[in-house]
Design a protein around this nucleic acid. Structure first.
Lengths: 218, 218, 218, 218
DNA sequence: CATGAATGAGGATTCATTCAT
DNA sequence: AATGAATGAATCCTCATTCAT
């Protein structure tokens, strides 16, 4: 029967609907302030139904986190793979801007990923999911590492530690995004997000590129 | 009478004692998990007394934040003012390492400043305190801005926007500290905190310095 | 058509299957901890189906109780009727041991019958079922009453109230079984279940027998 | 200050008041049906206050149980110690009637002690309290054991196992009380509680006494 | 008949805050 | 000023029961 298939589809839809609602509610209020009740209301289901689809509030958090990281990793992979022959710094530029677009598309998601109670997170979430989150996060960064490695091989960058250089680039972009995303900080300075981001990206790329001429190491 | 003065002093001491207790408790458990009860116990006063000195749990949070920012600003000022005639990038280096030392001295403080539920912060906290936090934060960054300005004036840096360049530097260092401080992220990579920090600092300084030769702007 | 008959048979089988599942689940977890969900799973049907066959969780409880009482009554009847001409106290002995065997065969059943939330039982359960439970319980005891009556008629026992004497015997055996079955109580004393039961049975039989010589009444 | 003392007294009074309320509510509805809310209402305090005085619902249960057992043990001790030189069976009679009076004074308490979810109780309650309950329970029975021992020494009873004989007597009385207390069972028979209890007590005493003449053991 | 998704009324517990003493 | 007892709203989660398919 097609009923079975439809049922399954509907169930998945409902699941997604709750997840979507949870995302909104968590984004708006933060995980701790958000209530399951509010999630249920937003999804237009009863509280009990939420628990029909998800084990606990924490589980939802974990799934949301994972989802976000996956989306980001996917975008980075796409950015990496888009074109075959590309100057190394151009490829890094694309990765950087893919990150920026993710941030723009889902600023609250970004905020959520950053603001999450990181220390306590681990104890609260299913270890398997936690490991997956870790892996996914690493997977995203790996595209950057790979691009840097190409730069080293191709001679664009000096003989530096690829992981370290990738980490620096990423930390910088991350730091900038947090800076512009942070209400407290944004007010401090009249900086334009996009311009600052671009400047930061270029500055680090330049800083990395130059290494070969000067020191050959950080 | 001196009684008046003593009273006032004692009151201030008690206040500080509660604040100290709150810092410890908040650091150990995170703001949400921490209870006023626990703060009171640690300070060896009653719960009611806590409310005699502070309006609410959130107020304490705000003051703690402020305190942290002040400490950091102080350290940055000291780093800036330490020596008169210093090459610009050396001065920025000193500022950068002052930040690193603050992070090392109070890693939990740093974590706390970062992990704080920023969005909701504003609505909850006394606007005056909020503004002070903002000012203090800006004050800290201003030492960096000033140093960059000297670099521009002295010709070390190109004719860039000093605020922007300072922001980039700061965002980078911030991003690196978060990276190494974050348990989830630290596991991802086998990077050494200090080495990464140094590399990042140097990379950005290099990137900023070079501007004049290449493009004159980000 | 035979379909009708088969349908009916199948329905009864399903009913029994659910009842069996409920017994297991209730025994293992106690009535309150047990969930209808667990019963359904054990019976390999859906939750809804359980409600197709039974009005409520409480109804199932009542039926289980009834079933237990019936099993006991059956055993007692068999014990009573086993042999025609039997000295009275021997017949009572057989009844007593039949009870003990029931306890041994279904200790959890016994426990369940005893531990049940008796007070609330009545209001919750179908009055008809409740009355049946009452009748069955009485029916079981009646075999004891009958045996005692024979003892009175035959002169073994004094001219006592047969119902009362039967009640005393039964209460004693019941009390002993509860004593040995009760984890809290069992630990208190190092008594062997079987020996204690036998001693109690014999003691009461002796006590009842002697009446005629002494007082002729309790 | 006397304030301190008064405070302490008031606190204890409040504690007792909540305990009293809990007893009533638990008696009326059974432990599982009873809600902390109902307890609070009955005690005319807020729900939070209940938790100010007691760790959990289970703790209250344990204390109530302990309290009941202590009261019973006290009554039994008094019954035992009332008169010095007393024929052994007279002393046992007094113990038996003390039990009956306890039952009459607190029938719901008795019911509660009996109906308690025995198996699960242990896991739920503080082990220390559990052990105390065990001890207290044993302590009560010990008065009976002691009386029987005197009977053995004095030659009233045969050379039987004192603990076993005491257990039989107690199991019988217990069984009778449960019989008459049990709504389902009481309806079964038109027996008068008091008369049945007396008959049972006398029957067992007789049965125990006779041993020496007949078998000297159960 | 059978299913199983959906419901929603609770229930135990916590904790920031108040206030009489 | 200091206390700490009292509050009660808020929160997560459970589960018996219903009902559309």
């Amino acid at each position: 029967m097609a009923t079975r298939a439809r049922r399954k589809r509907e169930k998945e839809e409902r699941r997604q609907s709750i997840l979507r609602a949870a995302r909104e509610v968590f984004f708006e209020n933060g995980f701790h302030q958000a209530t399951v009740e509010a999630v249920a209301e937003r999804a237009e289901v009863s509280k009990g139904t939420v628990y029909l689809y998800f084990e606990s509030k924490e589980t939802i958090l974990a799934l949301l986190l994972l989802e976000g990281l996956r989306e980001l990793a996917k975008r980075l992979e796409e950015a990496y793979a888009a074109e075959e022959n590309l100057p190394v710094d151009e490829r890094l530029r694309r990765l950087g801007w893919a990150y920026f677009r993710f941030f723009q598309a889902e600023p609250r998601y970004f905020h959520f990923l950053m603001a999450m109670d990181r220390g306590r997170f681990r104890e609260v979430v299913d270890p398997v999911v936690y490991q997956k989150a870790l892996d996914t996060s690493l997977e995203g960064l790996n595209w950057v590492v790979r691009a840097v490695e190409q730069g080293i091989e191709g001679g664009t960058f000096g003989d530096c530690d690829a992981r370290q250089s990738a980490a620096i680039l990423w930390a910088t972009l991350n730091g900038v995004l947090e800076l512009v995303e942070h209400p407290l900080r944004r007010e401090m300075m009249g900086l334009k997000s996009r311009a600052l981001y671009e400047a930061a990206l270029e500055t680090v790329l330049r800083g990395l590129r130059v290494v070969k001429e000067n020191q050959g190491g950080a």
